[in-house]
Design a protein around this nucleic acid. Structure first.
Lengths: 224, 224
DNA sequence: GTGATGCTTCGACCGCGGTCGAAGCATCAC
DNA sequence: GTGATGCTTCGACCGCGGTCGAAGCATCAC
């Protein structure tokens, strides 16, 4: 018996198959309606609605109403990071799959984690941003250096904090088991990658697939 | 409906109050017996035993039999990291506690995370080890540099890999939301801190409290 | 061998929470 | 206004899983 944060409550929210499927679907970063999430989870609309209200009450989701459409999304990158951590353990202890499959390999290279890039490319990128001193580790935070601020501005990437969200944040990568970049800067970089058409989102997957020229451009800008 | 790692199964293992209490107790790194864990969880011995077999089957625990005593411990630093991530979300979405209390503050400064140090001090230490190039980020891993190897050897810290466990690993800190050092090196450093009596473990808590001189010694060796 | 200790297994109980059909509510188009 | 769409609420059902006492099993001390 101990007080402290109610970890059982949070874990049990993720611990139902229908809710886990919904959260997994939302890891792609796109907000979805109750009908879409019911389909993802394989349950009826009333059941999905009941799950969604539980996830809302637990603080794991946000809701944006647009007319008669109601879009559910993950509450934060922190929630996404927790789900990544659970996926990591599930992968590690789960039955070894015979062949990981091409989609799985693509996910390890680059994928969406809520609103930012994850995978080997993302971890390598954060390492290089530190090496080039565009980002600094300081006072237990990741901070944008002056040269980093001008670097990203020159690329047309907005580096200003929005609504209480930090610019830079670390997020643990389940496939690499190292940190990648989250926060508004992480989200802005992913936006740029997609906007520049350096990479495209795989349909019905979190995988991010770079084109040959897009990969070169990405590496020149972020990995050089 | 989707295939993939069974995250609901792992999360539901953590999602029961009794099991969550047990896992929380094991975050201190000390392996405990079924009776001790039953006490922690506030359930009877038969109930605790049933929970423990479920956690074992799910791959979250390891078991070491010593005569008629059976010691349960967390299966890996990865499992510990997942629990830290869940704690982080529970803290963030949970009711804001009126006064965090001194023990809570001490936990944020330094605490045990399974077998290694976590908290502000641990995050600062990993940053400095990178700055001093004793550790290197390379190929999506953390590697010990040659100078790092001789540095730690000189301190009497064994830096050899043991039984398929990596020497260096990142683990996300729930209070700082940045990486600290896990792996055999992370464990060896915590061992040294305790062995040198630079700090002591708080009873019935994960907090690690440095003595004034111990803190100076730690900062001289790892934060300078 | 005998008795003690530590834990697991068995069996029975029970209630929490997931489930969906039907009804209700809100917003839309026209 | 009327009908359609999208979602939530209500109500009833049901079964999974948590619970513990009693019994059983394994290892210890002597």
């Amino acid at each position: 018996m101990r007080e402290g944060p109610d970890i059982a409550r949070i874990a049990s929210l993720v611990g139902d198959p229908a809710r886990a499927n919904m959260l997994n679907a939302l890891m792609g970063g796109t907000a979805l309606t109750a009908s879409e999430l019911a389909l993802e989870a394989g349950v009826s609309l009333p059941t999905a609605s009941s799950h969604l209200s539980k996830l809302m009450e637990g603080g794991l989701l946000t809701l944006a109403s647009q007319g008669r459409h109601r879009y559910y999304g993950l509450a934060s990158a922190q929630v996404a990071g927790m789900i990544e951590a659970i996926i990591g353990v599930a992968e590690a202890v789960g039955p070894k799959r015979v062949r990981p499959g091409p989609r799985d390999a693509a996910m390890r290279v680059a994928r969406v984690c809520y609103d930012h890039l994850a995978g080997e490319q993302a971890v390598a990128m954060l390492d290089r941003l530190f090496d080039r001193k565009l980002l600094l580790r300081e006072d237990n935070e990741i901070r944008l250096s002056p040269s980093g601020a001008s670097h990203f501005s020159a690329l047309g990437i907005d580096t200003h904090a929005k609504a209480r969200r930090p610019v830079c944040r670390a997020c643990l990568d389940w496939s690499v088991r190292r940190s990648h970049l989250a926060g508004t800067l992480g989200a802005a970089i992913l936006d740029k990658i997609i906007a520049e058409k350096w990479a495209r989102r795989e349909k019905d997957s979190r995988a991010v697939v770079f084109s040959p020229t897009g990969r070169q451009a990405f590496e020149r800008v972020f990995l050089s």
